[in-house]
Design a protein around this nucleic acid. Structure first.
Length: 854
RNA sequence: GCGGACGUGGUGGAAUGGUAGACACAAGGGACUUAAAAUCCCUCGCUGGUAAUCGGUGUGCGAGUUCGAGUCUCGCCGUCCGCACCA
């Protein structure tokens, strides 16, 4: 094997070193996933695959650097590592590009993939590229069509007419999860409510299971909590309010059945079927309904409560002579609970507001603590409530439910906020839904033999709307059942479909079936999954659901793969200050300089407004292009900077001086070893498992091994870097020319290179080779810390009087309390403070601290 | 409004209830240099002191628990995030 090194006494030239080792790793297949059955323990490290938007950005660099550090560490620690990469390649930006620049979405996407792949390779990430997936490949999405049909067969995929979130800019529907503050997550357009027939996946069936299984996951507590809140379980009761004027009783869901005696009205959602029924001969009601069901805007942004009395009254389940007016009200949501509520104004702020507006009775039924005004929403002792009087809320709830049950007027009920996942999108660049609509047979699945349904290539983006729908002939087919004229489903699948199973596909990406059960058994779940917190709900919830749904639809998903991500690391954003000129135009960081006084100015010397640290984004131009950093400093510098100072889950503040500082260290490491390696190459390294006269150096080596190993195991990358720096500071202080020192220095430097390798692998490989390392660092095992060498003979002990630090002592290890007290009392300062008194109490923590209480 | 997280030097950040500020960045001083860059060395929470291996003080504010609190508890203030008419 050719492992020539650059000649000594040359300056650090990262580009040459990096290209050389990237080629070497590529040629030697250094990161191929080991074949199975494995002799070692498997470890699956995965970073969220990117959308091929054009070029990689700093967010990618940070995310994938973390993953690479884990991958390289685990490999050195004798694991069989699966570390794949692919492309989340369907999606709207490709269509926008097609509309703007007349480029076909596929060509645009493929070109972006090429660019980004080259950029990722230039970062030296240890991926097994033979497992690369692009989700827009027919070979990938064809499996999705089978999954969809399996879901359909098992009633997990179904069609219903529903009010959906319509994004007028994207001209497509969005999932609830994609609507943020009433606006589209990508377009920012105000979302409209439209009634359409759409495909849904029955994720809500798994609500409780998805909730319960969060518990054992090694996820950030914040993410688990977000999912819990999103699923939003609540325990309560269904209650029926009857009326002989209605075809059926009003069914209400409440979490406060203990306040039932305080009811003063009932209210239906504008979309409620009973409301529609009543509107038939009530034009005012009709108008009210039409106003409020049309837009999201009127529902969620204007919070004033509007209602209309239907003129109907309903019977209170317990108070025989109480008839409650039935309203239709804008604040009642159709898609939560039953779409109907009973109003208890005394104990619910919304009902209170509504009751005040429409002069409805406000009757307290929970004794509010002194000083609490109505509406009082807390629990308490029930009053004015017949058989519930004197009970606390919990008892009252149970009792009401029991009574309702007895009378057939209600029952206990558990509800979830989570709604079914709408998966239809009126888009071209996505996976076609394999369904045919026949005027005689209805909904007909595309038969297995006709799969996959592929996207037509010749599409027209010059008209708005879904290109599949106005394609001249693609959708026109004959019905597989009756042979009559029929049309294809022209909606495509939400692109979250692709990311819901790609991690499982990576375990056997060439398998003719979607999954290879054996491979799933070997690799799944993903041991460590790294990505942005913005996917805390959408992607991570869908993926968890998908594995369950696939298993229930006949796919051989092993139980061990049901929770796909065992451990999750959510990395923070990469941030940079923003700059604007006097006109408010955003400026790129390169366009901003500082004048003599240190003020930010533009190229013409005009003042620049420096904004706060914000996530790097194209729109505000506060971006640093990774490509430029790689070219100027090398990828090792970029990688080390990504992890040096800030814990991974926090936002990283980009700084030029930070980059320079990291580079200065690498340069120093390079030149120091460049000098030393000539002399050390022939030296036989000291076995760090054996003792050495220089106990301090040996201790520094073992301490570094222990600290870096533990910090990496806990993803404390910044601390691991600090531990590496401590070792380097120690080793740089040694005299390499001293022949007693040389063997231990050499082993110290070797340990340093192995420990630092996950961060800056190219430089470490180069220096390792120059130092005479046998195998590549990619095949060099991780060093072992012998705790025996960490021991010191003496311990420094803090001496406190009454808990305040008053001095320090150096005592031999294992000194007893009496020896410590005697030594402390010998210190002049302690003597003065004690003033002849004996301590009332002595707290002695061996080898750490002595506290004398007087 | 509800839920949560966080608050430590000029900056990023360390710190199993046990010597706060590891490791860096910036800054200042010095060496080398005709000069600059680069590199190397030193200083670096605040404060008193010529100085010390010196004193005082210090982890948003106020209380509490403890021999001892950046860390635990309670109450404020501030920042950030999530959800938001979810009955």
């Amino acid at each position: 094997m050719n492992k020539k090194t650059t000649p000594p006494n040359t300056p650090y030239a990262p580009q040459a070193i990096e290209a050389k080792w990237q080629k070497h790793w590529h040629d030697s297949q250094a990161f191929a996933t080991p074949a199975h059955p494995a002799t070692k323990k498997p470890y699956y490290i995965l970073e969220m695959f990117p959308y091929p938007s054009g070029r990689i950005h700093m967010g990618h660099v940070r995310n994938y650097t973390f993953g690479d550090i884990v991958a390289r560490t685990k490999r050195a620690q004798n694991f069989d590592v699966l570390h794949p990469m692919g492309w989340d390649a369907f999606g709207l930006p490709a269509e926008n590009a097609a509309r703007q620049s007349n480029k076909h979405p596929e060509a645009w996407t493929r070109a972006n993939i090429d660019t980004m792949k080259r950029q990722l390779q230039a970062m030296g990430f240890a991926y097994d590229w033979s497992r690369e997936i692009a989700s827009c490949d027919v070979d990938y999405y064809k499996h999705e069509q089978k999954m969809f049909l399996a879901f359909y067969k098992h009633n997990i995929a179904y069609r219903k007419k529903a009010y959906v979130n319509w994004d007028p800019v994207e001209e497509s529907v969005l999932a609830n999860e994609q609507v943020i503050d009433g606006r589209g997550w990508r377009s920012g357009a105000v979302i409209e409510r439209k009634q359409l027939t759409q495909w849904f996946l029955n994720i809500s069936r798994y609500s409780q299971n998805l909730l319960d299984s969060l518990e054992p996951l090694d996820w950030p507590a914040k993410v688990a909590r977000m999912q819990r809140n999103w699923i939003g379980a609540s325990q309560g009761a269904n209650v029926l309010f009857t009326s002989d004027k209605l075809p059926e009783p009003v069914r209400v869901f409440t979490t406060r059945p203990d306040t039932l005696f305080g009811a003063s009205f009932c209210a239906l959602s504008p979309e409620h079927p009973l409301a529609t029924h009543l509107a038939h001969n009530n034009p005012a009601l009709r108008r009210f309904i039409d106003t409020y069901k049309a837009t999201h805007h009127a529902r969620s942004e204007e919070h004033d409560k509007q209602g209309i009395d239907t003129g109907i009254t309903v019977a209170h389940p317990f108070i025989t002579d109480l008839k409650l007016p039935l309203y239709v009200a804008n604040f009642v949501l159709m898609d939560y609970g039953t779409g109907a509520v009973f109003g208890c104004p005394a104990h619910d702020p919304r009902d209170f507001e509504f009751a005040q507006k429409y002069q409805l009775p406000i009757r307290p039924v929970i004794t509010a603590p002194n000083g609490e005004s109505l509406p009082y929403v807390g629990d308490g002792v029930v009053c004015n409530s017949d058989f519930l009087d004197g009970m606390d809320s919990a008892q009252a709830k149970a009792r009401v439910i029991a009574e309702l049950d007895k009378r057939g007027l209600g029952s206990a009920q558990r509800r979830y906020r989570l709604r079914d996942w709408g998966i239809s999108r009126q888009r071209y660049w996505g996976c076609p839904i394999p369904i045919i609509h026949c005027p005689t047979c209805g909904v007909v699945p595309v038969p297995e033999k006709d799969l996959p349904v592929t996207l037509p290539h010749d599409v027209d983006f010059s008209v708005s709307g879904n290109p599949l729908d106005h394609h001249p002939h693609w959708k026109h087919v004959t019905c597989p059942t009756c042979g009559g004229q029929a049309t294809r489903e022209t909606d495509t699948l939400d692109t979250f479909f692709e990311s819901s199973w790609y991690f499982a596909r990576f375990t056997a990406p060439q398998s003719p079936q979607a999954f290879d059960e054996e491979a799933l058994r070997t690799w799944m779940p993903v041991d460590c999954y790294i990505g942005g917190i913005e996917h805390a709900i959408l992607h991570l919830l869908y993926a968890r659901f998908f594995m369950r749904a696939l298993q229930d639809s006949g796919y051989g998903i092993p139980d061990g793969a049901i929770e796909p991500f065992k451990r999750l690391l959510t990395q923070g954003m990469v941030c940079h200050p923003t700059y604007q000129d006097v006109e408010g135009t955003w400026l790129e960081p390169q366009e901003v300089h500082s004048d003599k006084a240190g003020n930010a100015v533009d190229k013409d010397g005009r003042a620049v407004v420096v904004g706060r640290m914000e996530k790097m984004s194209k729109s505000k131009k506060n971006v640093i292009d990774p490509q430029a950093i790689i070219e100027q400093w090398g990828c090792d510098t970029a990688r080390l900077f990504m992890v040096s100072d800030t814990p991974p889950e926090r936002d990283l503040e980009w700084s030029d001086s930070g980059i320079k500082g990291v580079h200065r260290y690498l340069k120093r490491l390079y030149t120091t070893l460049d000098d030393l390696c000539v002399g050390l190459k022939g030296v036989r390294a000291h076995d760090i498992g054996k003792s050495h006269g220089d106990t301090a150096t040996l201790r520094a080596i073992h301490q570094a091994i222990r600290d870096v190993t533990e910090d990496l195991a806990h993803h404390r990358f910044n601390r691991a870097v600090a531990a590496v720096r401590i070792l380097s500071n120690h080793l740089f202080g040694l005299d390499g020319g001293d022949e007693d020192v040389a063997p231990l220095l050499k082993s110290g430097l070797q340990v340093l290179l192995v420990l630092q390798n996950p961060f800056t692998p190219h430089l470490c490989e180069e220096l390792w080779a120059r130092l005479g390392g046998e195998a590549d660092l990619t095949r060099t095992p991780w060093p072992v810390c012998e705790s025996g060498f960490l021991q010191q003979d003496d311990a420094q002990i803090a001496v406190q009087v009454n808990g305040k630090l008053r001095g320090t002592l150096t005592l031999p290890k294992g000194s007893g309390e009496q020896a410590a007290v005697d030594a402390a009392r010998a210190l002049p300062r302690i003597q003065a403070l004690l003033a002849e008194q004996s301590p009332k109490k002595v707290i002695y923590v061996p080898e750490r601290l002595l506290n004398l209480v007087v």
